[in-house]
Amino acid sequence: MMTNSERRVEFSFRLFEGEVLKRMFIVVLIGTASLNALEIKNDLQAINLAGSERMMSMKMLKDYILVAMNDTYKNPKKDLQKTMERFEETQRALDAYVKDPEIAEQLKKVDQMWNNAKNMLESPPKKEEALKYLKTMNILKETANEATVLLTKKSKHGTSQAVNTAGRLRAISQTIAALYMLKTWAEDKTRSSMEKVMKNFRNSLDFLKRALKNDTQAKKVLKNMEKNYLFFSMMEDAEVFTPILVIKRTNRMLKKADDLTRYLVKKQTKGGE
């Protein structure tokens, strides 16, 4: 039988043991969060991430419209929430990395535009405000693009423009998807926007073909992108389209463009994103 003194010692030991375990658990949590957090180590990675915000702007718009249409393919509601979180995480990483005053000021503008977009995305969608949604997300995309362009101009890496342009193909894929989804609400009012994005698509492909003409791996991806360009060029005037087909095609295009962007970053640095 334990004495009162022995009980007190055992009780104190258990308290100490519990506190040690608690502190270990907190350290593990912090360590896991640090591993999961985005960390930018160089300009090319910054260009890659800043450029991804252009894509996310249109991806969120696409998912927002799909949720409003009660479309459950690929769970757009869950994907929307995930992309919103990723956007904010990317902004935090960029804010931590950027030291240049001009770029930092542009990132503040991205934050402001994001607040507007976030308020919209967290509100119930209305069909009559379809073009307003497009305008809001376009402003966010263009504001993020300006930050990406500034990072590209001030980068010392020779391939920064190629990384920027390859990253732009990601945004183009999701802009095409979003515009097709908006077609069901805004009818022909999205035509001028589609013409603009297809022109941007063509120009981006032409630039990358010249810049990466000696890169065998990049040329394979660009060949695939050329097929996507022809596909959507033919679909541009189609009166009827299948949303799932568009989503599948643009998602594959997004994956290829993202792989190309990451490949170009890793080729010039010791590690990717």
Rank of each mutant, 00 (worst) to 15 (best):
A162D: 10
S204N: 14
T216I: 11
I139S: 01
A144M: 11
T175C: 00
A147L: 04
A162R: 00
N214S: 11
F232M: 02
A238V: 01
M235S: 11
W185Y: 15
K154S: 07
K183V: 05
K189H: 11
K154A: 04
I176M: 08
T242F: 06
A162W: 00
N200W: 05
T216M: 05
A162Q: 06
S193E: 12
E226M: 12
S192C: 03
L212E: 15
Y229S: 01
A211P: 03
K199V: 09
E146L: 12
L222F: 09
E187S: 10
K153W: 12
Q217Y: 06
K153D: 10
A144P: 12
N138Q: 14
I172S: 06
L222A: 09
H157N: 15
N145H: 11
W185H: 13
A147F: 06
V221G: 02
E146R: 14
T190Q: 10
N164P: 00
T165E: 09
M181T: 06
Q217P: 04
N214F: 04
K223C: 02
L179P: 05
T216A: 12
M194R: 08
T148E: 04
E142D: 10
T190S: 03
T184D: 06
A147R: 06
A211V: 07
E236V: 04
F201T: 00
N224L: 10
N214E: 12
D206C: 02
R191Q: 14
V163Q: 01
A238D: 06
D206M: 14
K141R: 10
W185K: 04
V163R: 02
R168L: 07
S192A: 13
M234R: 15
K196F: 09
T242C: 09
E187T: 06
V221F: 03
N138M: 14
A144G: 14
A171C: 03
I172D: 02
T175N: 00
K189T: 01
K141G: 02
S233D: 05
N203D: 15
R168G: 01
T190L: 04
A186I: 05
I176W: 09
L151P: 08
S173C: 08
Q217W: 06
Q161T: 13
V149T: 11
S233F: 11
K219C: 00
R170D: 03
M181F: 00
S193F: 05
D215M: 07
K209D: 13
F231H: 11
A238S: 12
T148G: 09
T190H: 04
G167I: 11
A177M: 05
N200E: 14
K154Y: 13
A218E: 02
K196V: 00
P243R: 07
E226P: 03
L222G: 05
F232V: 07
V149W: 08
Q161Y: 14
N228K: 15
M234Y: 14
L169Y: 01
M235N: 07
K189Y: 09
A162L: 09
L182W: 03
K219V: 12
S173Q: 02
Q217S: 15
Q161L: 15
A162N: 03
T216F: 13
E226T: 15
T148K: 05
L212K: 08
H157F: 15
M181G: 04
K154C: 09
P243A: 02
E226C: 08
S233L: 09
V240S: 12
H157W: 06
L205R: 01
T184R: 03
T159F: 07
P243W: 07
S193L: 10
N203V: 11
R170A: 08
V197F: 08
K153L: 12
L230D: 15
